[in-house]
Amino acid sequence: MSSPQSQMPQAAPTWQAAPGTSFPSGYTSPIPVVRTHLGNAIASEWTKIKSVRSTMWTLGVFVLLVIGIGTLTGVVVAESDPALDGESPLGLGFFGLLLGSMCIITLGVLTTASEYGTGMIRTTMVACPSRGRVLAAKGVVFFLVAFVVTLVSACLVAFLHVAMLEGDGAKSPTGGEWLKGTVGIAAYVALLGLLSLAVGSIIRHSAGAITIMIGAVLAPLVIALFMFSESLQGVRDALFEYSIPNQLSVFYSNSLSQSGPSGWDPLWIMLGATAVAFAAAFALLEKRDV
């Protein structure tokens, strides 16, 4: 482990070295040299994400929205009569998670874009000149945080709804429904955040990237609403079915439409979109000046 620093340059002078030139050899540090890897970058990003207040804010508001709105919906539905006509109560978590996803989008964007606003990115890239490694580490840390927080919140809300509506004519969810309504939705929302993180790295401007992502969530629905013409029916349906809110609802099998994505499709769609955005972000990061 503790190989002295002086070994490093000797291993390397492939470029050109004048053998035997004795020149005042530079300073040798007592700090051991370690060959760094992705793990170092991940440790660094973990420290970064937990040491700024915006993380606590966005995640705090997220949990509040998911649990708060979930509880409210549960109370309202339980009061009404008949409560749920043989439907799964898990679907009630939809509204909280839809609103909450805005927080995850914000945190995702801030993870990359805010470094450009503050100038931190230059320090980061000087410390870790492998730009791909920096982006990968940010992605890993953010995804895990977003996934865990969403999963815990979604589970809490799901248990809450099932408990509240048990005797109220609601059907008890199957194992598959449980999986989709907790792990599935958490993976989808975390991926949506990861997509935002890549967009933040491409746009390099927090407000701009957040606006783009919120636009991407809402615009298809809004545009579809204004497509009255018969001839646009096909486009209108597609916009509707593939809009992010509708994709979210697919996880509760109460899709707003009959055709379009079903089952686990939304997850694969989001995975594809995120992969494309990451490829673009990697390529641009290598090419551009910091």
């Binding site: 970064k48 700024v52 503050t118 230059r122 320090t123």
Partner: peptide
């Protein structure tokens, strides 16, 4: 070239970690 919301200690810590 740093985030104003982070403490000096944490700023240096994340740099130290990235380089082992």
């Amino acid at each position: 070239a740093w985030h104003g919301g982070r403490s000096a200690y944490n700023h240096l810590l994340c740099l130290a970690q990235s380089n082992g």
